[in-house]
Every structure is written in C-alpha cells, then in structure tokens.
Computed example of a mutant assay.
Amino acid sequence: MPQALLYSFRRCPYAMRARAAIASAGIEVRLREVMLKRKPTQLLAINPKGTVPVLQLEDKVLTESLDIMVWALGQRDPHHLFVKDQEPQLQLIRQMDKEFKPWLDKYKYADRYPQHGADHYRSQCLEFLAPLELRLAKQAFLYGPTPSLADLAVFPFVRQFAMVDNNWFEAALPGLAAWLTSWLQGPLFSAIMTQYVEFADRGAEHSFGDCQLSRLV
C-alpha cells in the first residue's frame, strides 16, 4: 500500500480539488473517507482543526487543499496542468478562496443571512465569476486551450454556485456553464466522485488515485 494517507470527504469542494490533482497525477494514496459530524481521532491528532482534506506524508502533514494539489502535480504532471503561468494561477485560486467562497456560502444559505437577499449575495459572487466568463468566451479553459491547475481548483466551487439556481446560471453565464459541464461529464470527475465506506476510527481504508487517465475532460 502507498505511504501517503489522504483524509477526505466526498462532497467537500476543497477535498474534491485535492482528489482531482492526485487523480490527474496518477499517484496512488490511501484514502480515508470521513464524515464531518464524526471526525476520527486519527484525523484530529494530525489536524486539530478537523478540516479536510489532509494529506499525511512520511515527513509532513499538508492541511490545505492547494498545498496538496501543488504537491501532487510536483510529483507527476502527465496532463501538463501546472507548467505555465504558475503564479497567476495561484493568485486566482487564492482570490477565489478568500473573496468568492464567503459570498458563495451566503448565496447557498441565504436564509441564514437575512441581512440581504440571495440576489445580493449572487451579485457579489459575480464579481469573481464575470472575468472567468470573459476568459471562457475566448478559450476552452481558464488558462488556454488545455486544462490547468486553476481549472481543477475552481470547478468544484462553480459547481456549488450553479446548483443553487442552475437555470439562472446557464442563462447568465453560458461560457462557465459549458466549461463546468465539460468537467462534470468527464472521466476525471467520475474518478474522484466514487463513493467510499466511511473510515470512522477503525473503518475501511481505500486505494485512490492510480487512475492513469488518458484525458480529464
């Protein structure tokens, strides 16, 4: 069995993008599927925050999804996801995490934030999404004609945004909608969304990542 150990939660977008990078790299890891309401003691021992994803390596523990993505593609990058514009990609991803994600949470759960309506929170999300729509009007992916690290990092969060009101999303952001569809219908998404039995302290452990995908979308 591989030494690297990944704690993951299937529906978490941060965990999704970490799994996407590992699967894209074709690196086999041991996967422990956790439920956030029942965090295993082994996870809390190496990450007291209890967040996922967490990647435990022989010499260190990575607790941020972007760090896991960079680690995975630094080991192997057969689809050339991170060979150009590295710093702009990282800046875009960090901007999304810092600026877009908080508004996305309010948009998804607008009833919990009655200070404004869902339309207001959606408009704030568009501050980040509108420039991506302009990019995708000119090219197939965020950084050119082929997928990049940024595409992998962003699409799980755009998926959550679209799920709130998919009809509005497809009408207002057709470029993003087509781009998202290409990811959701591609072999990579299928590979990372396999359902696993929960680990729960002494539960199942699974092999993940040795996909050897010929294409991602």
Rank of each mutant, 00 (worst) to 15 (best):
P102A: 03
D119W: 11
D111E: 12
P187A: 01
K108V: 07
Q160K: 02
D105L: 14
P174S: 03
W183E: 11
V83D: 13
R76G: 10
I93Q: 07
S182V: 04
L81E: 02
L132W: 02
P131W: 05
W103N: 06
L180N: 00
P187V: 05
P145C: 05
L152W: 05
T181H: 11
W183D: 14
A118P: 11
R94L: 07
N166D: 12
A118V: 12
A191D: 11
W179P: 01
Y107M: 08
A191I: 10
A153T: 12
P147D: 00
R94D: 13
L126G: 08
S123A: 13
A110V: 07
K101H: 13
Y143N: 06
L104Y: 01
S148E: 00
A110K: 03
R94G: 04
N166A: 14
F155I: 09
I192D: 00
Y113K: 04
F157N: 08
V164E: 05
H116S: 11
V164S: 00
Q139L: 10
Q95L: 09
Y113M: 03
F100D: 02
Q95C: 10
K138L: 11
R112L: 12
R94N: 13
F128P: 05
F128G: 05
P78W: 09
F141Q: 07
A118L: 11
L184S: 04
K101L: 15
P102L: 02
V83S: 13
F157T: 03
G186I: 12
A153I: 06
F100C: 02
F155P: 07
N167M: 15
L184W: 10
R159E: 12
G186H: 09
S190E: 15
Q185Y: 14
L180Q: 00
F161A: 11
N166L: 12
P88I: 10
K84V: 07
G175P: 07
N166E: 15
L132D: 08
E87Q: 15
D85C: 01
P78E: 08
A178S: 12
D151S: 06
P187N: 02
S148C: 00
A162N: 07
